[in-house]
């Protein structure tokens, strides 16, 4: 929890991240599994988590890796390589296909 708060606080404009079209958005629950908190803490800074659920389960581990890499390299998500790996593993295991 503390870690998530720190991540959130480090994101400059994260306030916008927590509102959906001018209201507070309903939570989009993700599967409770290792890496869950890192996914919520990082991904939800810029977008709601329904993006993950709707893009499943067709994404292979390779596709999830490409997506997370794009978020970091192109969209500037401040995620360390070890955290990125945990996030990719979580997405591939819980929202991916073999």
């Amino acid at each position: 929890m503390l870690r998530n708060l720190m991540i959130a606080a480090s994101v400059a404009c994260a306030a916008a991240a927590q509102t959906a079209a001018h209201g507070e958005e309903p939570a989009v629950p993700l599967k409770d599994a290792p890496g869950h908190e890192l996914v919520e803490g990082n991904c939800a800074a810029c977008h709601s988590l329904d993006y993950i659920r709707t893009n499943s389960p067709f994404m292979t581990a390779k596709m999830w890796e490409a997506e997370v890499t794009k978020m970091i390299a192109t969209f500037g998500a401040p995620i360390d390589p070890p955290d990125a790996k945990t996030i990719i593993d979580y997405l591939a295991r819980n929202y991916g296909s073999p």
Partner: peptide, 11 residues
């Protein structure tokens, strides 16, 4: 970040 925190807690 108040809302951020509140939301994290709820999640």
């Amino acid at each position: 970040n108040r809302m951020v925190d509140r939301r994290r807690i709820l999640q």
